[in-house]
Write a protein that binds this DNA or RNA. Structure first.
Lengths: 249, 249
DNA sequence: ATGTAAAATGCAAAAAACAGCAAGATAAAT
DNA sequence: ATTTATCTTGCTGTTTTTTGCATTTTACAT
């Protein structure tokens, strides 16, 4: 029996049953277990299947069930979150927005830091409630399904009654000329209320969003006090923002 | 059975039911509890699920919730939740409390049901936001770390401004004589506000809590309109409650 | 505080993987 | 035809992985 032929048989067996045992195949094809081992190793190398201890598994079988809830550009967002976390001091009163970058920030808050955090995001609130020294206040309101943040009149009303040292916000789009913009009108209202409630506003945005714009405007770029991207502050991409009165980290 | 195969099975079980018990899985797959323990440990390490005492929970369910670690008496709680879910009609405006039983209820709400749900629980809010036809309103306030629910004056203030058809509440302790009691003063204040805001109050409680009491009183037993346990309504344990004007399910 | 369930730990047997070697087959070059 | 190099295959002994069991430690609920 040819090697090629044998490997083809192995493959179709894997496709058929989603998984195989090396011992089974060795017996069926009447060759030594080592040969099968080597075949499977090769097929694995060629990404035709996945070799596991004692057998092999079809690629399709493995990928579908594992629901990858991977966040886009996690690494960049983590860098941003680290820079932002460095701004936090004991006793500060801050607001943390929804969005994956802000969630990273919430995760990166040191255990020993004494903070009061307001948020409109269910996920951020949950994350923060794991930090023993952080007082978490969830701003209520109707929950937007996709983003799991509180929106609407009631939320804005509640936001009007607070005053924080820093707010860390994200944005859909940001441009040196057009400022911060969003796809969604409701979100803009929320962000406006947040900015109004903050002494200083810190924008967290991955560089990919720079020089992009959309329909509804949140604020001018110089409303932002500090802007954090994953880039080095001296990066050329950020030069357009330097004319303004913005601190870039 | 291959190890990988087994782990895939564990994962899909977790995704399906949001939570599993190690002993159940061990029996189903016919391997020792140690093996399952090691598998789950490994999957946890690989961030595929979250290992908790006695079982595992899905990551997608809720990232980090102290409440969800408690998978105590899930089956009973699911029975209760099913009975409660049967009470829900299209167009209803309801309040759903925190606590595992209420969380079960939130999960069991049918996809096609049109509802407006108020809640003080982050986990319930998250769960409900997966239901396309449910309008979710999170009542804001300071978040209690252990239970991840909003508490405090602001929450009570917000509760004072709503009026719901039904509220589904849990309780720490319940007794036919002493009524509903709690270990925690703040929680009592919240529950009082909830009851005040409801036309009808539905108590969800596992039978284990019957005939138990604690320091602070929420309300008398006849303040409750409907009481749901996992038991058959004719069970002897419930006879003490039948004298009152309570519907028992 | 207490009893029970779960987790961690160490251990041993079995299975599988691995590395290295030698026999046989194949193909190309001399 | 012989040699040489390469590839394939099976075998051997060793190492690693996996698994279940017994025991201790820890965590949990009451």
């Amino acid at each position: 029996m040819l090697k090629e032929e044998r490997q083809q048989t192995i493959l179709s067996e894997v496709e058929l049953h989603n998984r195989i045992l090396l011992t089974d195949i060795a017996e069926t094809l009447d060759v030594s277990i080592d040969t099968i081992r080597r075949d499977v190793k090769e097929l694995d190398l060629n990404k035709k299947l996945r070799k596991v201890h004692g057998g092999a598994i079809s690629l399709g079988f493995t990928t579908n069930s594992a629901r990858n809830q991977n966040i886009y550009a996690v690494d960049q967002k983590r860098v941003i979150a680290q820079k932002a976390a460095a701004m936090l001091k004991d006793g500060a009163v801050v607001f943390i927005d929804g969005g994956t970058t802000c969630l990273e920030l919430a995760q990166l808050i040191p255990e020993n830091l004494d903070l009061t955090c307001f948020t409109i995001s269910l996920a951020v609130a949950m994350e923060l409630s794991n930090k023993p020294n952080v007082t978490v206040i969830m701003i209520g309101g109707q929950i937007a399904k996709e983003s799991q943040i509180a929106i609407g009149a009631n939320t804005i009303h509640n936001l009007a009654e607070i005053r924080v040292d820093f707010s860390f916000i994200g944005t859909g789009y940001v441009d040196a000329m057009f400022g911060l913009t969003e796809f969604d009108w409701d979100i803009v209202q929320i962000k406006k209320a947040v900015i109004k409630a903050s002494k200083k506003t810190v924008l967290l945005s991955i560089s990919e969003k720079l020089n992009s714009q959309h329909r509804y405007k949140t604020c001018d770029i110089n409303t932002i006090n500090t802007m954090i991207t994953e880039l080095d502050p001296n990066n050329d991409l950020l030069s357009a923002f330097k004319n303004n009165d913005i601190k870039i980290l």
